[in-house]
């Protein structure tokens, strides 16, 4: 095996960082979206006739909670393909 060059070293670390970025980035949104949907289920259990409104709000809330997950995805794609 040849010796590692500086450029390869940087690229390799970027790839590793891409994985860690997406991995840790997914923890928070995952739990947060879970809370949103959980509370939505609770609300539907109390008032089933408001189902359409609650589901809609749940989906919007989850989409916004997911934003940081998308940031993590963007950062890791940049680390893979641009750096």
């Amino acid at each position: 095996m040849e010796l590692i060059t500086g450029e390869q070293f940087v690229k390799g670390l970027a790839l590793l960082a891409a994985g860690i970025s997406m991995g840790f980035g997914a923890v928070g949104p995952g739990i947060g979206e879970g809370f949103v949907a959980g509370k939505a289920c609770e609300a539907i259990g109390r008032r089933p006739d408001e189902q359409a409104l609650i589901t809609k709000t749940m989906i919007i809330g989850q989409a916004i909670s997911e934003t940081t997950g998308i940031y993590a995805l963007v950062v890791s794609l940049i680390l893979i393909f641009v750096v």
Partner: peptide
């Protein structure tokens, strides 16, 4: 790491 840590939160 991406898949391992990424699966914890969801």
């Amino acid at each position: 790491f991406a898949m391992g840590f990424g699966a914890i939160g969801p």
